[in-house]
Design a protein around this nucleic acid. Structure first.
Length: 291
DNA sequence: TATCCGTGGAG
DNA sequence: TCTCCAAGGAT
C-alpha cells in the first residue's frame, strides 16, 4: 500500500494553491450552510448549486426559518436543481433540528446520520467540514482518487465497499482530517476527473498506481447508463415544474398538457403525491405540499 | 443489493 | 447528436 505521507503533503499543498473559493467553505459559513450545501451537492455539480444555495441561505439563514415554512416552499425554491425529494428531506431535516436539537445542527456523526436526507457521506461531510471532526469522507471523487492512486483501478466499485472504507480510514491523518478530506475531494473534482483526468497537473502523478500501471481502462461490466427521455423521471419533472411555477392550485388540465401518455402521466402524478411532492385538493386541483 | 429518484453541461 | 455523469439517499 502507498505510504500515506507520499499522498498527504502533495495533495494538501496542491489544495492550498488550487482550492475553489466556494461560499460554504468561507470562514463565516455556518454549520447549517454547510449542511444545505452538502444536500444540494448530492449528484449535482457545484456550478448549478451556487445560485440556489445563495438564495436559500438568504431566505432561510437558520433551520428554524426553513422549518417555519410549508414544505412546498422548499420544493419551489429548489428550482431545477433536480431530485426534488432532497428539498423535502432538507425541510424535514430542518424541522427535526428545530424540534429535537434546539435549532442547532448536531456535530455528532451518528446524530446527523439519523436526520432525514443525511446518509453516510453527508453525515461525515458535515461532521468534518462544519465541526472539524475526524471522519472518512467517501464521496465519488474521493473513491475515484483512491481507486486510481492506490488500487490502480480506473474507477471504484459500483457501491462503496468495506475495503474502501478501511483504506480511507487508514489514510486519515491524525490532525487536519477535515482539510485532508476536502482536499482529496477537490483533487477528484478538478484534476482526477472521471472522463479525462489531467494527470499532467496532478500532484501525486508520480506515485499514482493507476498511472504507473499505464492507466489500464476499466474492465468488467459497463456501468449502467441512465436513460432519461421518456422515463417516469422526466414526466415527474415536467409535472412538478408546472406546480412550482404556479402561484396557487392548478387544474388537472394544466398537468395533462405537459405529457401525452396518460397512463404514464397518472402513474407519475400518483408517485409525486405518494412522495409528498404534490397535493390534490377536493376540487381536483393540484399544488405543492402545504403540510 | 438493485433500482428509483432530475437536470443540464461537457466531450 | 448522444453518452456520460455530477459532494448520494431511501427502500
Amino acid at each position: 500500500m502507498v505510504e500515506p505521507n507520499l499522498l498527504h503533503a502533495p495533495i494538501l499543498e496542491w489544495y492550498a494553491d488550487n482550492a475553489r473559493d466556494l461560499p460554504w467553505r468561507a470562514s463565516d459559513a455556518t454549520p447549517w450552510g454547510v449542511l444545505v450545501s452538502e444536500i444540494m451537492l448530492q449528484q449535482t455539480p457545484v456550478i448549478r448549486v451556487l445560485p440556489i444555495w445563495a438564495d436559500w441561505m438568504r431566505r432561510w439563514p437558520t433551520p428554524k426559518a426553513l422549518a417555519a415554512e410549508p414544505p412546498g416552499e422548499a420544493v419551489r425554491h429548489w428550482g431545477r436543481l433536480g431530485y426534488p425529494r432532497r428539498a423535502l428531506r432538507l425541510h424535514a431535516c430542518a424541522q427535526a433540528i428545530t424540534d429535537d436539537h434546539g435549532g442547532e445542527v448536531p456535530d455528532d456523526h451518528a446524530t446527523l446520520l439519523a436526520l432525514p436526507g443525511i446518509g453516510e457521506y453527508t453525515a461525515a461531510a458535515v461532521a468534518s467540514f462544519a465541526f472539524g471532526g475526524r471522519h472518512a469522507v467517501l464521496d465519488t471523487n474521493v473513491r475515484r482518487v483512491f481507486a486510481r492512486a492506490v488500487r490502480a483501478e480506473e474507477y471504484p466499485p459500483t457501491s462503496t465497499s468495506a475495503v474502501e472504507r478501511r483504506l480511507a480510514e487508514a489514510l486519515l491523518p491524525a490532525l487536519g482530517a477535515a482539510r485532508w478530506g476536502v482536499a482529496v475531494m477537490e483533487l477528484g473534482a478538478l484534476v482526477c476527473t472521471a472522463r479525462a483526468p489531467r494527470c499532467a497537473d496532478c500532484p501525486i502523478s508520480g506515485v499514482c498506481a493507476w498511472r504507473l500501471a499505464g492507466k489500464p481502462p476499466h474492465t468488467g461490466p459497463a456501468r449502467k447508463g441512465q436513460t432519461y427521455a421518456g422515463t417516469d423521471r422526466q414526466c415527474r419533472g415536467r409535472l412538478l415544474a408546472v406546480l412550482r411555477e404556479a402561484h396557487g392550485p392548478v387544474p388537472k388540465a394544466a398537468l395533462d398538457v405537459v405529457w401525452d401518455d396518460a397512463v404514464q402521466r397518472e402513474r407519475a402524478l400518483d408517485g409525486l403525491i405518494a412522495d409528498g411532492l404534490a397535493e390534490v385538493l377536493p376540487d381536483d386541483t393540484y399544488r405543492l405540499p402545504q403540510s
